[in-house]
Amino acid sequence: MPSRDDDALRWEGDDDPTLDARSETAAEPGEPSEAPVLPEGWRAVGAGSETVPEDDAVEPAPAQGLGNVALVSLGVIGGVYLLWTIGWFLGATRLRERIEQSTNAVADFMFQGSMWLAIASPLLWFAAVLILTRRAATWKRIVLLLAGAVVLVPWPFLMSGSFIVVGG
């Protein structure tokens, strides 16, 4: 006689009583059956079950994630913010040399604090928009990120002769 493992590969043995999933007291297909035995803390839902109390009401399905276009947009804008951070770092370090040579210690101290805030501002703006607009519409998030990209342009980098002027 073949083993039970081999039975899965054959059609014969369907009348084996040990494989019968129904018990002797199970109802026929048209008859009502008694409620299944569930572990503690579980309850049956669906056809033939009791109504769900309001305090145990099912929560609505979570909102769908971002679409492909939104994810690509966030990636591109995130790359722009990373470039802005690098631009602020390069521009601010060039200005730092001029400030240290021409001013006193108080101005230098004030410049150091504002320089590091300026360098961190693109990353802080990006993180703040992503965190604070989690439940907002995607278009609002994109508009705020684009507005920040315009406002946070690294002017010291752009104005300190970083570009090669053609014909000039």
Rank of each mutant, 00 (worst) to 15 (best):
S3I: 00
D5W: 10
L9N: 06
W11N: 02
G13D: 11
D14L: 00
D15N: 09
T18V: 13
L19R: 12
L19G: 08
R22E: 04
S23R: 00
E24L: 10
E24K: 06
T25K: 00
T25H: 03
A26C: 04
A27T: 08
E31L: 03
E31D: 13
P32Q: 08
S33T: 10
S33W: 04
P39S: 15
E40T: 12
E40N: 13
E40F: 14
V45A: 13
E50G: 13
E50C: 01
V52L: 15
P53C: 15
E54W: 09
D55Y: 14
D56A: 14
V58C: 06
E59Y: 04
A61H: 03
A61L: 06
Q64V: 05
L66E: 03
V69A: 15
V72M: 12
V72S: 07
S73P: 00
S73H: 01
G75V: 01
V76A: 13
I77E: 12
T85V: 03
I86Y: 13
W88P: 04
W88H: 13
G91P: 10
T93Y: 11
T93R: 14
R94M: 11
L95Y: 14
L95I: 04
I99A: 01
T103E: 11
T103Q: 07
T103C: 07
A105Q: 12
A105M: 09
V106K: 12
V106A: 08
D108A: 07
F109I: 05
M110W: 15
M110E: 15
F111N: 11
F111G: 06
Q112Y: 06
Q112H: 12
P122A: 09
L123V: 15
L123E: 14
W125M: 14
F126N: 07
A127C: 02
A128I: 13
L130V: 02
L132V: 09
R134L: 05
R141C: 04
L144P: 08
L145F: 08
L146C: 11
A147Q: 10
G148A: 01
G148K: 03
V150G: 00
V151C: 14
V151N: 07
L152M: 05
V153D: 00
V153Y: 09
P154N: 12
W155G: 00
F157I: 07
L158Q: 11
